[in-house]
Design a protein around this nucleic acid. Structure first.
Lengths: 141, 141
DNA sequence: ATGCAAATGATAATCGTTCTTATTTGCGTT
DNA sequence: AACGCAAATAAGAACGATTATCATTTGCAT
């Protein structure tokens, strides 16, 4: 789905590091990765990219619209492949697992509220912090 | 409204730095202040508190339930006096002004979504990033 | 194959925040 | 009012995430 063309179209040379990072997002278990995550996974796979390059590439991909950046609690940035439509997130406070959801009613209401207050929405982020019920989750009773 | 007793009740000695910080939140123009904001304002008023102390005090006040901490885009923490009920925020992308709002429908919907996905909500943050229409705002047409 | 702008990697620098430690302060007790 | 001591502070070192610098390498049009 993401061929080197995607990079070209975005005005970016198709270099090795860029292709590797893109590849990682397409084939990784976890959809949501931090710069550190990407860097470590590349090192583990024997790839040799610099951390600075990872940061640079992630930012470029964000600007090119290939990735979306999120700021979950904790401060560090997390990235995700941009595909399909907007959605919000529920983050498990125990295991860090991220689930996505979309609720039309919430979206509509936001528009309403903003309009009433005299604002023009450009973006928004809704993060629910909760306890999940996955087997892996250390919080499980 | 916030007397030194508030500190005592929270198990905190009523020291000069703590009183000053509390005072600042009660009398400041802007409801939402970062550690840096607090530090600078205190310096400007001739008060002599260390930046480390500001960070410590803010964290303590948060734990004591006197302040709430928010993470707006950009990563840095912003604090606000906790008074009254929960609310969400609209942040102007041009001038940084923060407006508060509460929408029962949005709150209800969040509970619904979380429950359906098997999560138990512990906290959430909804930030709308938009353009405001205040006179001060540099974005104004 | 050649040239050069663009991209990279290593590392220094920056920013927000926390930690460390010696000094000071609040406050209950004389 | 002075004493004592735990708690709190100030200054600066340390830290983690991210960005900037710059010499070297690479993609790619010629």
């Amino acid at each position: 789905m993401h061929q080197p063309d995607h990079l070209k179209n975005a005005g970016l040379k198709s270099t090795l590091p860029r292709l590797k990072v893109l590849d990682l997002f397409e084939n990784s278990e976890e959809r949501h990765l931090s710069a550190e995550d990407v860097y470590k996974q590349l090192l583990t796979s024997g790839e040799d990219v610099g951390l600075a390059t990872v940061y640079r590439v992630l930012t470029q991909f964000e600007q090119a619209g290939l990735l979306v950046r999120h700021h979950f609690e904790g401060g560090k940035s997390v990235f995700e492949l941009k595909q399909g439509e907007h959605h919000d997130h529920i983050v498990c406070m125990q295991c860090g697992h991220v689930e996505e959801f979309y609720d039309a009613a919430i979206e509509t209401r936001q528009e309403k509220v903003a309009t009433e207050l005299g604002f023009a929405i450009r973006d928004h982020s809704l993060h629910i912090y909760a306890d999940c019920t996955r087997k892996k989750c250390p919080h499980r009773r």
